[in-house]
């Protein structure tokens, strides 16, 4: 009897554990696929369908090191634009990216898409993270 109860609890814990994990995965998938649409509408013209950029005019989104180092300010780049000299993939860029006033949730989705496509693998960028990052924009 006791063993049965322990067994049932164990199974329950496993189910909860598994469903928690798949919740994360579901969230990732939802962000990622939503982000792919935002990317097509707001970013792809400039950065390209493969994140390849355009010569020395528009930087590629394939430099994982750059993206990781700037993880906390990427949301600010989108919200406020970017107008300074940067080095991406070993090349310098200094053209302007205009500010794009999209909702924080859209930013979270598109950043999840970008940072997990084109050879990048950085996991989900959550709405909470984006809201925190936006508060610290310079």
């Amino acid at each position: 009897m006791k063993i049965k109860a322990i067994g049932a609890i164990a199974i329950l814990l496993i189910i909860i554990g598994a469903s928690c994990q798949s919740d994360d995965q579901i969230e990732f998938k939802r962000y990622y696929s939503g982000g792919s649409l935002v990317y097509q509408q707001h970013c792809q013209n400039c950065h390209g369908d493969k994140g390849q950029g355009l010569s020395s005019l528009i930087p590629p989104l394939t430099d994982s090191t750059y993206l990781k180092q700037n993880k906390a300010v990427l949301a600010c780049f989108i919200k406020n634009g970017l107008k300074r000299k940067i080095t991406v993939a070993g090349r310098t860029f200094d053209d302007d990216m205009q500010a794009d006033d999209i909702a924080p949730l859209e930013i979270a989705k598109v950043l999840t898409y970008v940072s997990n496509s084109f050879g990048n693998k950085m996991g989900t960028v959550t709405l909470q993270q984006v809201q925190d990052d936006l508060r610290n924009c310079k």
Partner: peptide, 15 residues
Amino acid sequence: TTCPSICPVMHRNML
């Protein structure tokens, strides 16, 4: 040169 919409795509293809 400052066209944010279709020009980057056009010139990526024109290349």
